[in-house]
Design a protein around this nucleic acid. Sequence first.
DNA 1: TTGAAAGCGCTAACAC
DNA 2: GTGTTAGCGCTTTCAA
Lengths: 354, 354
Amino acid sequence: MPRRRQAVTIKHVAADAGVSLQTVSRVINNEPNVRPEMAERVRGSISRLGYVPLIAAQRMGGSKSRLILSINDRDRTISGWQNREGTDWVDQMLLGGMLTCSRHGYRLILELVDTHSDHIERELLGAIGALRPDGVILTPPHSQDPVILDLLERQGISIARIGSRTPGPGFSLVMGDEGAARRATEHLIELGHRRIGFIAGASDYELSAWRVTGWRAAMAQAGLAADLLVPGSFDYASGWDAAGELLAAGDPPTAIIASSDQMAIATLDRARERGLAVPDDLSIISFDDTPIVRFATPPLTAITQPIAAVAALAVERIIAEQAQGDLPHDPVSVDAELTVRASTAPPPPERGRG
Amino acid sequence: MPRRRQAVTIKHVAADAGVSLQTVSRVINNEPNVRPEMAERVRGSISRLGYVPLIAAQRMGGSKSRLILSINDRDRTISGWQNREGTDWVDQMLLGGMLTCSRHGYRLILELVDTHSDHIERELLGAIGALRPDGVILTPPHSQDPVILDLLERQGISIARIGSRTPGPGFSLVMGDEGAARRATEHLIELGHRRIGFIAGASDYELSAWRVTGWRAAMAQAGLAADLLVPGSFDYASGWDAAGELLAAGDPPTAIIASSDQMAIATLDRARERGLAVPDDLSIISFDDTPIVRFATPPLTAITQPIAAVAALAVERIIAEQAQGDLPHDPVSVDAELTVRASTAPPPPERGRG
DNA sequence: TTGAAAGCGCTAACAC
DNA sequence: GTGTTAGCGCTTTCAA
């Protein structure tokens, strides 16, 4: 097998344009100190020859790697794919992240990391060491993990943390979970509900607590008791159990907010099992608004998470930091919206004003 | 900003183990001609120092890039993500492809390419040139595109083509579309259906024709007329139109097979619009079995495409070719399965034996 | 079986 | 403004 080499390199371009390597390099990287006419000439050669800089070589030269790693939870991601749960978190991150990357000549590489293992460090260093990305996008529950944050900071890599407000290195992006939960609760209160149950998310996600806070705040403001709170862990099984517990209560809720779509679907199934009509007997609101809740019967009212937008911001931020050095770390919040569909309605008359 | 350099390089390992660079390199790459004790000593240093080879440097040294590109249709992928249609093709490819890659020390990089543009060539050369992947996985409709195939072949890159049997360079993987369509049709025939409609997929996908062929074969074998065929293009709108046309026919079908989930959902909605109950008045079978059809009401009987398995095979094949040189090109087929759910039942009594 | 030398394509640092 | 030089970390020769 012949030693595979780059067809057309910076040398060819330099020769073709009759300039030095360095000038070509400067043009490629939009650096100053090149006369416009020179730059034009070089660009002409580049497109005529169809030259494309080899990322590996750029890295070796000592510049940025133009690579951004999106680090997602291994177990949850894989099991979501295997069970074909219809969760499109990863897709939305790719949508926002990849497209933004490619606009800037970067690439996004997806990396799955095992949260609960004692060898996170080794796993992560493997990826970082092999790729040397310029930046890393962390998603829950990694975004607040001190081991990961510490490791990344020592490597001098830009960090964008989605769904965490824990102080620490890097840039924080959140999706207004508290406000979203509040709005969902208010929507139900406006419909006349008094007994509103809440199924919390996994406790290793900071945002789980924020959502509970928003629900509590809205309930308090309306003078209602926020006593119908049960824990969950985002998956269907936990939602099934939680909904069962809520509906079996002495004074059961007329509406339930679930902290994930899977738990909302489980709640819907639980209601059906108990002979409750949705939304006539029970209103349901879900968090995330992944595709499956739109195809559910009835389609679920849901909090729509702007994941793509946030991923795009994360990428932009990392790239900006690469160009301009350290930037201030004020957290950014992109608000989630309440999408009203057919799973919410006024409570049954005899119980609404209970 | 200090020039960022690799913390621990092959040099450090060599020094630590008291051997030459070359010996370390040989150990890393599992090459022969290293005494076991030497190799052991080197491995000791590697893990003690936490050394990870830099992929970019390996590439520059002239070896494999350990990168595989998964090339997907840009428009369809992005619009699927944006509309949150719940199609998990990409996820399944990542599931099969990424995991297999990482087991072999490779990485899978997703690349979206615009099919219908006249600058495919430039776009593709950009990705290839920048990354220099060892192999490429092509999905429909790229898998049969002569421009793409030709370009890739000239670059000497391993090619895995999913969903194409067109002769050409590279390795072909299919999912038994014809057999699957046949089985779906037979399932309906066994239930007593005589009038079975078929909504075809986009004509720029080879597999669209295979599915039609399977349906035709099963109908012919049962002595039934295969006259209820309408074209579609995989998306909801085309399915809506197609189903409308089928159901408005003089002697309408009692069952419809749709070549995609979106079209199947559209058919379901169309049936509802016309006051037809599914499956009592109309049976529906869909192709793909993405998550949304499981959450539909009723859950749809569907052909389950083994995308993850096929992507895994594609990766394994590319890696094998890398190690062993050109391999024979016999196409591989992984059969799709029929998953029976609640959208298929015997036809209405007065029409089943029509 | 091992090591030394040369070079991959590019950029940073410095000269001019 | 532009060119020259010296690497980056690794693998491929090829010699020992």
